[in-house]
Design a protein around this nucleic acid. Structure first.
Lengths: 239, 239
DNA sequence: GAGTGGTCTAGACCACTAG
DNA sequence: TAGTGGTCTAGACCACTCC
């Protein structure tokens, strides 16, 4: 582990423990360099990590200060989903189960081919899953994935976590996502599987998810019951 | 302007112009350092900026490559709202007008005091605005702001942009936000002002917005017509 | 003017990838 | 084994803040 990363860990620990008070300046970079027996550049890099996390901010000519909301930010951080930076506020993720509504392989539609950067002759998986929290349905997921990028999907994988398979078995890394979030009226599927009433709204997330190299591997629509959790977006502006 | 920032601009321009092909490696850091007549550290810092933007990714021992979705990312970037990293997909922002439904000063409720880190005796502004796009209502905004942080709000300011006032007149900088997004059934106000039917869902954003130093300056609920734009969230994972 | 963070350099070594 | 990116150093100068 890099030295600057260890130093960032130590400083973070001190902030959360209250040793560096909220709204007060940290020791200057020179003093920290002396304490950690390293160069000032290394200290600066450690502090940059904390700036990006939203824990501190630096003002040239003045100092580096602990943000007033440092504790809130760190609390939210721990809730963030590891793969999208967006969390569905759930009591307990371990109680999530899946039910496969549909699973086959076919050629992509025009839109699917465009979103996934495919030609019309590169096959895709088409997957519909109902996901349940403690046995109660809370979202329907319609997912398209390129066979070429994510090969050998099985029903066993679908009953567990696709992301776990991609990260664990395939060794691929998640590189980002673009999500469009909107409210909608319930359609027949929502009413049937999510047990929505006619006037129960649904929350839809339409997203494309990319690997580190920018290759798209998932184009999906997820429809949530309106009363089952919300979406959390945390933004940090370090400019 | 810092040299590394200028170099990043130039490399970004080359990528978008197609001079560095998608999915191919950039010249190595040594070659770039020679070309730009600078040190390798400075080149690395420039590349780090591009990594955070989602334009390229680096693999130790191999090289720095242009992401396959580099062009998409840069398109979305230009749509991003400057203050939250979340955009309402609007045809033309310049046609937005506001109507003040309510405006007064009072003491905060318990929840407001907690969200804004205030005591119960520090006054807040309470503002309700209806916002219209080309004359058509598309969202209702309920905003609480601490008088101490954002002083001297007037009706003139409310009819234009509060953010413009905060940035321009007060010289304060936006430092981040936490947003909860959910779908909901329309309430009386939605039906009255947004002209929602009984079964038209609304998209609600509940947010706290912070200044650079972590001081919260806005706690608000925004309710959108479900057929007027969505929310765009862009996530980039550089780890 | 003193003190702070921001940038930049030249050089070194390490970790990793690929042929 | 050669080539790449990642880290780190010591020292320097600049830009900015605050007294």
């Amino acid at each position: 582990m890099a030295k600057y990363s260890q130093i960032a860990d130590e400083i973070r620990k001190r902030i959360l423990a209250g040793r560096y008070a909220v709204d007060h300046a940290l020791p200057d970079q020179g003093k920290l360099a002396a304490e950690f027996e390293t160069s000032r550049i290394t200290i600066k890099k450690a502090i940059e990590l904390l700036v990006v996390e939203g824990l501190v901010y630096s003002r040239q000519g003045s100092g580096t200060y602990v943000r007033k909301n440092a504790l809130e930010m760190s609390k939210l951080d721990s809730k963030m989903d590891e793969y999208v930076g967006v969390t569905h506020q759930l009591a307990d993720r371990s109680t999530i189960t899946s039910q496969i509504l549909h699973f086959d392989v076919r050629f992509p539609t025009d839109i699917e081919a465009e979103k996934l950067m495919l030609t019309k002759t590169q096959p895709v998986y088409a997957i519909d899953r109902l996901r349940l929290l403690s046995g109660e349905p809370f979202l329907i997921e319609h997912t398209i994935m390129p066979v070429e990028v994510i090969p050998n999907i099985t029903k066993e994988i679908l009953l567990n976590s696709i992301y776990h398979y991609i990260k664990g078995e395939l060794g691929l890394k998640f590189g980002g996502a673009n999500q469009h979030i909107r409210a909608d009226k319930p359609n027949e599927l929502d009413q049937k599987y999510l047990k929505c009433a006619q006037d129960d709204p649904v929350l839809e997330i339409d997203q494309v998810v990319y690997l580190t190299d920018g290759v798209p591997f998932e184009y999906s629509q997820t429809r949530h019951r309106y009363d089952q959790g919300d979406i959390l977006v945390v933004t940090i502006n370090s400019v």
